[in-house]
Every structure is written in structure tokens, then in C-alpha cells.
Amino acid sequence: MNIGIMDFLATSALLFAIGFFGILVRRNTLVVYMCLELMLNAVTIALVAFSRYNGTMDGNVFVFFIITVAAAEVAVGLAIIVALFRRRHTIQLPQLNLLKH
């Protein structure tokens, strides 16, 4: 096969860019949060690819940790979003502006 590490890296970088772009343009907190997950996934692709090509386990184990952390982060984040929605009845970022003096 002709697919090499560059191709995986390119996929990873593109995914990262898409996620970042999403965070910049989207105003719905939930979708922003999904884009964050995309970025983390991009990192895992890169790690697994490097791990495969370098022949070491550390990248794979790191991915294991990243998935754990991401799940925890999502749980806390969604709890905060839900609690906020209960008080403000919106999750659109531009309307969450109490913190401007």
C-alpha cells in the first residue's frame, strides 16, 4: 500500500483545522463543544499513527488517557451547559454576556 504517515497526519491536521474553525464560527455552545471533540480526535489520530510508525506503545496508551479525560470533560461541560440553560434559557454564546462590565 502507498498510504504513509503523511496521509494520516494530513487527515489529522485537517480534522484539527475543521474543529478549530467550528469553534470560531459556531455560536451554539453545544456545537462548539462537539467541535472541541473533533480536535481531540484529530490528536488521537496523530498519536496512533505515530505510535504505529514508531513502533512504540506510548502513543496508544496516551490515547487511552485522552479518551478518559475527554469523556470526563464532556460530562462536566454538559452539566454546566444544562444548568446554565435552566437559568438563562439560552445556550447561544452572544447572549451569554453577563460578564461584560
Binding site: M1, N2, I3, G4, I5, M6, D7, V48, S51, R52, Y53, N54, G55, T56, M57, D58, G59, N60, V61, F64
Partner: peptide
């Protein structure tokens, strides 16, 4: 030359490796 998969050992394939490292 893009290295074809398989020249290095696929260490990530073995679940027990994860347990060992963790």
C-alpha cells in the same frame, strides 16, 4: 518512501500491552 504498514511491529494491536503499560 511511505513505509508500508507492517515493517514495524503493530504493538498497538495487543490489548494486553495496554494493561502491561498502564
Amino acid at each position: 518512501e511511505p513505509r508500508t504498514l507492517g515493517t514495524t511491529e503493530a504493538v498497538g494491536a495487543n490489548p494486553s500491552e495496554y494493561g502491561y503499560h498502564l
